[in-house]
Nucleic acid binder design. Structure first.
Length: 284
DNA sequence: CAAGACTCCTGACGGC
DNA sequence: TGCCGTCAGGAGTCTT
């Protein structure tokens, strides 16, 4: 699903196609496309605006407009943002006609994605943790941040107010690279492992961006229409029952916080009592 | 503060 | 073959 690497790929590929272009018409289709405001005001505010930049914050994409306002969107599960010559009547939730005759489309099969117009990023976005690739998220930061909380690693890393941009796939992959079990408590992580986790997050995300993201189902495609390639490098995600590429033990899948969670029982040793907890969760 | 449940939505998939 | 139940998952909200 679109996480940081996928959104970064979208932004990089859409940017050269729309920067400098002016929106000559805007339409919104269906309910709940907009996180805030009315379709009428949204569309009226966009017509005539020139797009001056395209960027990413966490899993949000941001289009800067020449009047200083921002078009902010989230792809959630199945959203796509891309430039096309022809509309996609079935899935399109918002359509922006550009002055070169092409269309900037926001499509979304499952309709969880949202758009909004804002004057500042702070106005549009909830509280977000640091960007993993901006330098702030280093070993020292991670060690202090983990120690300051008492939460299971898996849901903590999914929490966007802790670290921005990670989703289910890259949390599982990062924990495996760091040798940390998803059910471990954050305050029990040794300092050395916290440093390893910071490194793991950065290296997994960088590798995934280089591969243009992950496509393991029919949903995520780059704006240019290609699947990503990082699914070929998954160490644990979706590999339950298959041997760990590092040690040969069979990858396991459990549910943590209502999320499918994949790990290697040998590379990521369980904390005390974790097996019992997982067992009880499955029974209830 | 932590954590679980629930909600939104629809294509894909397993079972019979 | 075809119908139907179940699942997946980001993030907000509500409850325990």
């Amino acid at each position: 699903m679109p996480e940081l690497p996928e959104v970064e790929t979208v932004v990089r590929q859409v940017r050269p196609q729309v920067v400098g272009r002016t929106i000559v018409a805007a339409q919104v289709f269906g309910r709940d496309v907009l996180a805030r405001g009315t379709p009428r005001a949204f569309c009226a505010a966009l017509v005539g605006r020139r797009i001056t930049a395209v960027r990413r914050r966490a899993k949000y994409f941001v289009l800067d407009l020449d009047d200083g306002r921002l078009l902010v969107g989230h792809l959630r599960m199945t959203g796509r943002l891309y430039v096309a010559r022809e509309p996609d009547p079935k899935r399109t939730r918002a359509r922006f006609d550009l002055d070169d005759g092409r269309l900037l489309l926001f499509t979304d099969v499952r309709k969880f994605g949202r758009l909004q117009l804002a004057r500042t990023l702070d106005e549009a976005l909830p509280a977000l943790g640091p960007e993993p690739l901006d330098g702030e998220l280093d070993g020292a930061w991670m060690a202090a941040a983990l120690a300051a909380r008492r939460r299971l690693l898996k849901p903590l890393l999914l929490d966007q107010s802790f670290v921005a941009g990670l989703g289910n796939i890259y949390v599982d992959e990062s924990l495996h690279r760091a040798g940390l079990h998803p059910l471990r408590s954050s305050d029990g992580v040794p300092r050395q492992r916290a440093f390893a986790l910071a490194d793991a997050i950065r290296s997994v995300l960088s590798a995934a961006i280089a591969a243009e993201g992950s496509s393991f189902d029919t949903f995520y495609r780059t704006p240019e229409g290609r699947p990503g390639a990082f699914q070929d490098e998954f160490a644990v995600y979706g590999r339950d029952g298959q041997p760990c590429r590092a040690c040969g033990a069979l990858i396991r899948r459990i549910v943590v916080g209502q999320r499918g969670t994949h790990f290697c029982p040998r590379c990521q040793p369980a904390p005390r009592g974790a097996a019992r907890k997982a067992h009880m969760r499955r029974r209830t």
